[in-house]
Design a protein around this nucleic acid. Structure first.
Lengths: 104, 104
DNA sequence: CCAACGTATTGACAAACATCGATGCATTCG
DNA sequence: CGAATGCATCGATGTTTGTCAATACGTTGG
């Protein structure tokens, strides 16, 4: 059976270890910015988006968009695939679910 | 029927408004610190805890503990009640659930 | 091969934050 | 009342973070 539960403990279950707390904190930090939340919801809504299509709805500069996509990608919440000169982003629903499960 | 769902939109549903994104970001920011996550899990595990009992397991100074309890309380994740000279903390499961639902 | 384009990286800067010592404020106990 | 206790607040400090301009890198089209 495939393991689908949280990767690093649950917040409300047993007391968290230092390692689990640090890991979870880094994950939640990726969601702790309004621009990243909007970015994530845009990618989710459009199923697949290139970075160029994010700049206008988010109202931020191109380096800032790149900075935030990198942060979300490092948190495992989105993945990018380079096709031609465009970078296409998709959400990783399992990773979002893992975070959700951490709040169970 | 009592409204139990998320207070401010879902990340993966429709694109978030600026207001919802800001509100959600502030909530997740409260979880974006390992000390606060451990604190929250301790309060959840012990059901009711006074600040004095948090200092030792968290290994932080008293002002730091007070700072973090305040942050979690302002996020609505815990509530405090002053009894005598002790401050007793409890988690607010509905608020945690609201955040969890925002990741649906 | 060169110019144009989309993206990533670097450097700089201001704002936010985590932390602690010192101090203030209640409350309790002798 | 006066000393002690538990917590909050303040001030200071080092670190992290969000942002953008400038620049570098890889890809495509002529």
């Amino acid at each position: 059976m495939v393991k689908t539960e949280s990767c690093c403990g649950t917040v409300l279950g047993a007391p968290l270890s230092d390692a689990d707390a640090a890991q979870l904190a880094r994950a939640f930090a990726a969601l702790a910015d309004p621009v990243r939340l909007k970015l994530l919801s845009l990618v989710a809504a459009m199923d697949e988006v290139c970075s160029c299509d994010l700049q206008e709805p988010l109202g931020k500069s191109q380096p800032t968009i790149s900075h935030h996509t990198k942060a979300l990608a490092e948190a495992g919440l989105i993945v990018g695939e380079k096709r031609g000169r465009w970078m296409w982003w998709r959400v990783v629903p399992e990773r979002v679910a893992a975070l959700r499960d951490a709040l169970a």
